[in-house]
Design a binder for these strands. Structure first.
Lengths: 341, 341
DNA sequence: GATGAAATTGAAATCGATTTGAGAAAATAT
DNA sequence: ATATTTTCTCAAATCGATTTCAATTTCATC
């Protein structure tokens, strides 16, 4: 059913029908009511592509998905979805072929120029992230989930990674720990940098020297958590505590400790970052995991919200949200016990 | 840069340019080469929405995401993305507001009629799934990831859930287990039904009676795995083995067993289904987890592929792929040991 | 060199909506 | 009763491509 046809059936012009449906004020309430009602009855829906062509609005927000298929991603998207359900906006997932720099920039350029999305959400930004410069230059609305140092104004939503890790580390120090290992995310992303800063600053402000031997970077997997933790714990002067970047990493650390006959919570303390997953909770681990917590899902919801505001005309320069992170202490942290060397 | 403009710069008509770029044979190779080259140089890209309006093709595949935000989802999508990278097709994620039946049907109807996607992938179908009937009736191309009994021809890709669970269960029986618990997925989906059938048929063919007290259904979470396992293990005649639906469930079972001082692999055997996640592997669990394995990511890739074939004209009725599932035995399964009651 | 076939090219119609600018009808003011 | 404003409606232009159909050019053949 096309507009023309539909209008004819109603004995109205396409103009009036279009206006009635899009809520323009020039059409009388009586007419509008009739049009809306008949549209439902006859099943008329404007052709999306025609609308898009004409208005230049697409009704979609783009999210680029790396190949890694990280498990946070689904939660973030579920959060976005929660907010977008009521809007007439969908989420376009754009696969990223290879994480090479040029290809990535190319992808964002194409995406911005292709007019397939109204806005883009940029994930895991780097300190000097050229994607941001590019999108800014192209005039494509975007929101950064995370932050960047880059000298270009950009709207962002981020959690206080630095503060969270500083508090976590400080807490461990307060418990008497001095050899504290840090298993961070992949090098390069700002969030990993911020966590690193938080970690170092906590140590330094307590006069503890940073030992590079106790710092590792890598994907958030159980596997790497295990490997790093294991190699750290096998050092002659092994760490008595861990700060870790994710729940999966924590699982790996637990495993490593157990494999060496070490008790989590007494021999080894662990604090990890918890993005809050419905299927795996810190509370349920044994022993329950002390964690810095911030809901990935809530972030998704809020990001979607902010993007909508952006599209509605809110100034990008005023959108900066830094979310505090809770530190929740459970059984995986305890006072230091001198390791049996 | 618009087609008209671009064509003028080249001294050609829009027609020729369009043909050159879309690879029609009527244009000379010399001209085509020039057009393509100049398009790159001047940065001309056809407006997606105009193309879509004109051709009726959207260049997007729709996937409906339930609110649960299951962790499989990201893997499946990553797999799809892998295949779609080379095509000019994206993934449209449509959030599902509430899982109520009417709303769900409404959503699919709207989606099919809105012409925002070229095809839809239906997940976790039910035995008598009206979404399938609806999409078929509306003539919207779709692929079912999973299967349905419904009396409507539909293209599908599924893994052999029944066979996998039958083998897993049979193996446990061969090891001497007779009290085998089953923690299945949520009731209603065909895959859960198939697994149930596989479980029961294995028991029955060995002359073991099915005990409803040992069967549970629910989401794939660590939490539920723990709760069900715990309650089963506290029964007077506790099970000596578990068949579980997911890695998260398995984590919960491990935890429950440990909390009761039971050894996985000797006191209690476990086989779970592994969708193959990069961040959590069965091999790395302690003890390593025996699993029925099938890659969710590979399924996503293949589903994307099949949808493309569908859109290219392949007959839906001939697309039926049943993937075998590997059974990989590791340390979590062992011969039965009479429980100390 | 003329002829017909094959290879190229282009003008104009089309996809299905929105929106501008103008006209008719109704309401209000003089 | 007429003039003026306000409210409602519509014809036609437009968004930016694709594609049909017709025209032109090139080429091979006689």
């Amino acid at each position: 059913m096309k507009l023309k046809e539909f209008a004819k059936q109603l004995g109205l012009s396409p103009t009036t029908v279009s206006r009635a449906l899009s809520g323009y004020p020039e059409v009388s309430e009586v007419t509008r009511a009739r049009v809306v009602q008949e549209a439902v009855r006859l099943g008329y829906r404007p052709n999306v592509n025609a609308v898009r062509l004409k208005t230049g609005r697409v009704g979609a927000i783009g999210v680029v998905m790396g190949r890694a298929g990280e498990f946070h991603f689904a939660e973030f998207m579920a959060g976005m979805a929660e907010r977008l359900i009521t809007e007439d906006t969908d989420i376009l997932v754009i696969p990223m072929a290879n994480p090479e720099y040029d290809a990535e920039m190319q992808l964002y350029r194409r995406l911005a120029e292709s007019q397939r999305v109204d806005a883009i959400i940029v994930h895991s930004p780097r300190p000097n992230d050229q994607r941001i410069a590019l999108l800014h230059e192209l005039g494509m609305p975007f929101l950064v989930h995370g932050r960047s140092d880059i000298d270009v104004p950009h709207p962002w939503l981020d959690i206080d990674n630095e503060g969270a890790v500083r508090r976590a580390t400080s807490h461990l120090i307060d418990l008497g720990h001095t050899r504290i290992a840090m298993i961070n995310g992949r090098e390069g992303a700002t969030y990993a940098l911020h966590r690193d800063i938080g970690y170092r600053s906590a140590l330094q402000s307590h006069g503890i020297e940073v030992d590079p031997q106790l710092i590792a970077n890598g994907n958030f997997t159980d596997e790497l958590g295990f490997r790093f933790a294991r190699s750290f714990l096998e050092q002659p002067k092994r760490p008595t505590a861990f700060v870790a970047g994710s729940m999966m990493t924590a699982l790996g650390i637990y495993r490593a400790a157990r494999s060496l006959g070490l008790q989590i919570g007494s021999d080894v303390s662990v604090i990890a970052h918890d993005d809050v997953f419905p299927y795996l909770t810190a509370d349920n681990m044994v022993p329950s995991l002390s964690a810095t917590r911030s809901s990935m899902r809530a972030a998704g919801t809020r990001c979607a919200d902010l993007v909508l505001q952006l599209l509605a005309g809110r100034s990008p320069t005023e959108i900066h949200e830094l979310w505090p992170v809770e530190l929740i202490l459970r059984e995986s942290t305890g006072p230091v016990r001198t390791p049996r060397t």
